[in-house]
Design a protein around this nucleic acid. Structure first.
Lengths: 357, 357
DNA sequence: CCCGGTCTTGTAAGCGCTTACCGGTAAGCG
DNA sequence: CGCTTACCGGTAAGCGCTTACAAGACCGGG
């Protein structure tokens, strides 16, 4: 008000509009907006006033270009494909919890999170990852979506943190202690329950996490004299459908199931329990089942699922923390391992203790 | 190779580096990268070669600034707070499905999704929303996080789609047909089951969706001569904890529960069922319970939850579609209503039909 | 062999913002 | 009262990329 004509120059509101409206230079506007320098109170007020009146919001791209900080972390995960199995609704729980951890941590530093998911069968994954990288200050990548060499190369351009994988040269890594978790679980099954026949229903064959878990169960079972069925017939894919498929296959071929089935993750366990239930087999009386992850629904299954809790939210938060440190100070830990925790519920054969809440 | 010294100029790789490496101008590089013009095959190859060797990825900010398109949609939701109740783990399921819909649709247009969540108690929500808006080409906002006038103002700067709210001047809106869904549900309860006493365990009081649902249940119940308990004593907040709290309160004050409890959403129903179970009340024999949303876990509850399915993924996809249309063509529908579907399972009293699979 | 037309490539002008640098003004001091 | 010292605030130079414009290369016809 007072000024002749604000006359929004049509084009989307820039700092120049604010400056002329407030009768100062664009530099002053910028300074007020960013709290740099020490503008006189009068100046500051006029600028703020103009900003308010105009409803001005600075353009992130220009800002980023100018000061070299986008305040954006890119996160690329694999999602289920566009047409998931009917059972698969919950297949993204795992990554969503991680997202949440990242989001919370990022928010605290004024960063936003750019999601760039890819399907399992998408082509040009590298291109997608690169595109996200170009829009962000740093990248958090799930497992092995692209070859290690590509990750290394990418990492020379923009800081990269891989999640739940094995460290890659140049990139940083954050993961959970799969090995220890699986070992605890096996000890509980073998030592506390006395099961000496286990089966390991695996995850995707190309997953480092899956390898680590398989290795651990074999080693620990052996150490305590228990058998473990594993291998091609026991090949799942981290999905509920996959777990159900394996069990059905085993049962149909007349195979005898081991006393306890250790699943690569909770979703698989969910599928297994469904398949078992359909065949009239009781969990845990006939067959014990365990998961891995401790996804939120795990406690709501019947029976509640015994599993290994990965601190997924912290995993995400830690990934961001490491990345942020790299972005702001230029250095960050290259391999962080987070502890896991055995969660004993009922699906292993333990009696109901403290159900739900 | 061949050229004297690539000598990465330390600073992070720009189009100039690529150009000099390939022995062409930056314009040519840009053209090759964006498929503009018709570069000679030899030129194209040299550029691509250089890009590959250097591992160049163009800077998104610069690109955005230059051509006025960031290829980013901002999405701001309310999340639970940083220290959720133990029960609340699944409280974000709802929005995650929507995210997924947005993500899928966005990906198809080469857009990425920028998440900017805010907690229920966060201050300066408007500032956060604005910040996200500044980094994106368009904004998808959940419900009413900020006053309508703010939304309107924001919408003059950048296209805005609100979700599941009521349309706001200037912004576009996409929502589900709450009214029809609730009416179908009530008809099922009253007409098919003969329940004539219902209770409506509401959502957050400031939510338009909650209002719409409350209105609908009252109207439809009245139309069929059923009573419905509603109001202060029945005030939930969309959370499981809230649902449980209300039920406990009611029971402790010695109140008699209606025959059927209609919850504002599935999470609330989950809490209600827990609370009921703890008091030894059976669902649906003693009290019927219904939800709203059809969250993935709904089918895994015991008994499986009768609810109203909102096509949440499509909701997200539609939101993006509308926004994209606005961004690219300058116009988009201002109020899209998506149909809902009554999902009858067992918590209403119906017999087990086709359980989960 | 020269000239006009085509096709390719280079030059340079921004996109909106931050910030180094410098001139101008007001305050401080002898 | 005049000069030094701070302090503000303005001017302008980029940040890395796209693209309009123009210059150069190359072709064929006359």
């Amino acid at each position: 008000m007072g000024l002749p004509e604000p006359k929004r120059p049509k084009g989307p509101l820039t700092i120049y509009d604010v400056a002329s409206r407030a009768g100062v230079s664009i530099a002053s506007v910028s300074r007020v907006l960013n709290g740099q320098g020490s503008p006189r109170a009068a100046t500051r007020d006029r600028v703020l006033q103009a900003v308010r009146e105009l409803g001005f919001v600075p353009d992130g791209a220009a800002r980023a270009l100018s000061n070299g900080l986008k305040e954006v972390v890119g996160v690329v995960f694999r999602r289920g494909d566009e047409t998931p199995f009917p059972d698969e609704d919950e297949s993204f729980l795992f990554i969503d919890v991680i997202y949440r951890g990242i989001d919370l941590a990022a928010r605290r530093q004024g960063f936003d999170v750019l999601m760039g998911s890819v399907g399992f069968n998408d082509g040009n994954v590298e291109a997608r990852v690169a595109a996200v990288g170009g829009k962000a200050d740093g990248l958090i990548l799930h497992d092995r979506m692209i070859p290690a060499t590509s990750i290394t190369r990418l990492a020379s351009l923009v800081p990269v943190v891989t999640l739940a994988g094995t460290p890659v040269p140049g990139a940083m890594n954050v993961r959970c202690d799969n090995d220890e978790g699986m070992r605890q679980l096996v000890r509980h099954l073998v030592l506390d329950h006395g099961y000496n026949e286990l089966g390991y229903l695996s995850g995707r064959i190309d997953s480092p996490d899956n390898h680590a878990r398989a290795k651990a169960i074999e080693a620990e079972a052996k150490a305590h004299g228990a058998q473990v069925a594993i291998g091609h017939d026991w090949q799942g894919d981290y999905s509920a459908a996959g777990g159900a498929r394996v069990i059905s296959g085993l049962l149909e071929s007349g195979r005898k199931l081991p006393r306890a089935i250790v699943c690569a993750n909770d979703q698989t366990a969910l599928g297994v329990m469904h398949a078992l239930g359909r065949r009239g087999l009781r969990v845990p009386q006939d067959v014990a089942v365990t998961g891995f992850d401790d996804v939120p629904v795990a406690r709501h299954l019947h029976p509640p699922l015994t599993t290994v809790r990965q601190p997924m939210q912290e995993l995400g938060a830690m990934a961001f923390a490491v990345l942020y440190s790299k972005i702001s100070t230029g250095r960050g830990d290259s391999d962080v391992v987070l502890p896991v925790q055995l969660i004993v519920r009922e699906s292993c054969g333990c009696a109901a203790a403290e159900n739900g809440r």
